[in-house]
Design a protein around this nucleic acid. Structure first.
Lengths: 221, 221
DNA sequence: CGCCGTATGCTCGCAAACGAGTAATCGTAT
DNA sequence: ATACGATTACTCGTTTGCGAGCATACGGCG
């Protein structure tokens, strides 16, 4: 059936976007990405890099050009992008840009088990996030302003996007923190009581007069 | 050295949050998650489920309770959460909520190679995303309103978050689409010209009087 | 009352992902 | 000149992730 993309790792996208400029050997790809700032976030995994380049080669998106042996250094295999590779890059980019996919960012996962924390604890953690977010946004902004002088806007849209999203997140967290600390969050008392009683309300099921979708009937038969 | 979490897969978090309610066998865990709506997004991977439960057991976060054999059905191993498991759940949730991590959502990856598309193509893809986003947000809202009647707010914060973020994204995309279609996006003409000339401007390097951080000297020596 | 479709519950084995290790070379301070 | 740390470039072996397949049991209908 083969998953949608023959090489599905996003690192592969980054590799393609590097070798489309000029032929390179894998380590050089890594340097280029790092210098573009991808390295810090995407945390290049050395193991993966060579696996991914190998797979790209296997599927004909890149091909080995020469095995240069400069000096007596370990042999460096230089790869060049193929027409298929260029096509894949364009097609993949189009898909990523045009089609929103359901994602599970770590924060959303955390929120989905928020009930596992006591209310006060949850509030404290949200406050910490808020501080970190505010600081992070300031950093992003500063970095963006620095880059604007050197790099055309086209290559900075991802950073602008990141800032926009982080800001929305910060606003949302701020308002939740507000509700929790003022006590206006509905159900706060029940939440507190469940924890005091030792019960761990971690599902949508079984409390407060709620038949809820979880009682759909696959309990045990 | 062991990575931060002994079992790092987010599916493990979901498993813990299910078995904390009552002991269950893996398949039942999957049903519960699916009924909570995690299934659709998180797309439960059968292979991973058993691997993850096994790992949780290996590290003492859950333990096998009984190997029930109802009727003559295949043996079902029921797992119960341990104290260590409960602690892990709380600790993990706290971390996820309190600490923003750099993430690479697929859209951001797409934006980072936006220059690989021709401007008109990019504009078209962004328009498609915008439509999909608007529709998706409406659906999320409708689903949320339905759930509100049955489930306490506490279990819906993740959905509220999702909506807030998607909305910010839609707004951002809308404004970018505006700039591109009105032609006010700076550098649009250069972008068009590069493509017409067959050059693929996919790095921050080498154009428009920009020394740029990519020319850092790892060219080839 | 036998047969087929569907739900349940899990196993197996490949393949991707990764991290730590290795080995050469280069810059540089002594 | 030479030793030492940093950088370059890659390899290897161990998890982890996951899809497809398998086996049992139940329900309903012809």
């Amino acid at each position: 059936m083969a998953s949608r993309r023959k090489v599905g790792n996003l690192l592969a996208l980054a590799v393609l976007s590097a070798v489309v400029q000029r032929p390179m050997h894998p380590y050089e790809v890594a340097s280029v990405l790092r210098s573009r700032g991808k390295g810090e976030d995407m945390e290049i995994k050395w193991g993966s890099l060579y696996t991914v380049v190998g797979n790209l080669a296997k599927h004909g998106f890149v091909e080995a050009v020469e095995s240069e042996r400069a000096g007596a250094r370990p042999e460096r295999t230089i790869y060049r992008i193929t027409d298929a590779g260029r096509a894949e890059l364009v097609d993949w980019a189009s898909e990523l840009v045009s089609t929103p996919q359901p994602e599970w960012p770590r924060f959303k996962a955390g929120l989905s088990v928020l009930a596992a924390l006591e209310p006060d604890e949850a509030l404290e953690m949200l406050r910490r996030r808020l501080h970190a977010l505010d600081a992070g946004i300031a950093d992003l902004r500063a970095a963006l302003d620095r880059h604007r002088r050197e790099v055309p806007r086209l290559f900075l849209v991802e950073d602008e996007y990141e800032i926009a999203v982080r800001e929305a997140e910060a606003e949302w967290v701020r308002s939740l923190v507000g509700e929790l600390s003022s006590g206006s969050f509905p159900g706060l008392e029940e939440w507190r009581r469940w924890h005091a009683a030792g019960g761990a309300p971690t599902g949508g099921a079984g409390q407060a007069g709620a038949p809820s979708p979880a009682d759909r009937g696959e309990a045990d038969r």
